[in-house]
Amino acid sequence: MKKLLSIVIDIVLGAAVAALLERVIAPSLADVQPWMFSWPSIAFIGSASVCWMLLGLVFGASLGRLYIGLEVKEGTARTIATHLGLFALSTFIIGGWIVTDISPIEFLSGEGLQGAGRIFGALLTPEFDVIGEALSAMVVTIFTAFMATVVAVPLSFVLSFPAARNMLGTGLLAKTIYIVLRAILNIMRSMEPIIWAIIFSVWVGIGPFAGMLALVIHTIASLTKQYSEQIEDVNEGPIEAISATGANRLQVLWFAVVPQCVIPFLSFTIYRWDINVRMATIIGFVGGGGIGTLLTQYQGLARYHEVGTLVILITAVVWLLDVVSSRIREALR
């Protein structure tokens, strides 16, 4: 009898939580009307009740049993934590659904599907008249990425040694340098290249140079981190051996540390160039020049047949670079 009562409590609780979500939380997040006794509402509340009941029966975390004073398999603390967690998760999902304006109706309505048909139709019947213009813009994008990588590599190489924990020793100054450098690099990396591109397009004017500078910043931050982690990973043995010959610090770096890092460094660098080509495309949208800028222009003019050509070209180049760079990295291993 008590068991039955506990199950009823669980079901009522589930319904209450669902009702709370639907009637109180959802309307407070956005201007939506609760469904109120409509079929979706009944289905929602019903399924929540079933969930809460199963939570008690199957997973042994029943608030009903806890309330009545029956033994709870998962224990008091875990049962309460489970329910709170589940409540938070459902709140987040429903909140997220509302905040992001998710609308299956628009996605699948006749009008919506017509629009999709139009754009896909245009993309699939590309206008190849723009191919010359597109190719030269693509060359600009590839070289923007290439130059950014070339400029960033030597700087990253030099910075990666003080940014590696095992290179500077244990002095206070060394620790300070390490922490400050790591902090700066983290901030540099946290700012997306697209933001750097906006900054530099004001600084040096719209065009590939702004895009390159944006990529340089991001590449230095990323490569220095990758390089320095590789350095932190080197085998100490050769360092000891070269130190034991009476070599100085620079010689130890060059003859014991660098040889262990060259191949991984090359691999990271090639991969970074690959990533930079993709990023250079995106950066073009905000004034970084190259194919991205061209794409926004045609998109702005709603000339989707031309956009189709550009999309095909970008996809082909990115795919090709991906294949080539992974082949090279494979061969380096």
């Binding site: 043995g237 050769p238 000891e240 051996a241 070269i242 130190s243 034991a244 010959t245 009476g246 070599a247 100085n248 003859f255 014991a256 040889p259 262990q260 060259v262 191949i263």
Partner: peptide, 20 residues
């Protein structure tokens, strides 16, 4: 460094520079 230079050392794991 001058002191280290006049004393040779060899190790259990040889510690040669790989790839060279």
């Amino acid at each position: 460094r001058a002191h280290r230079a006049q004393i040779g050392m060899i190790f259990q794991h040889f510690n040669l520079i790989p790839r060279h």
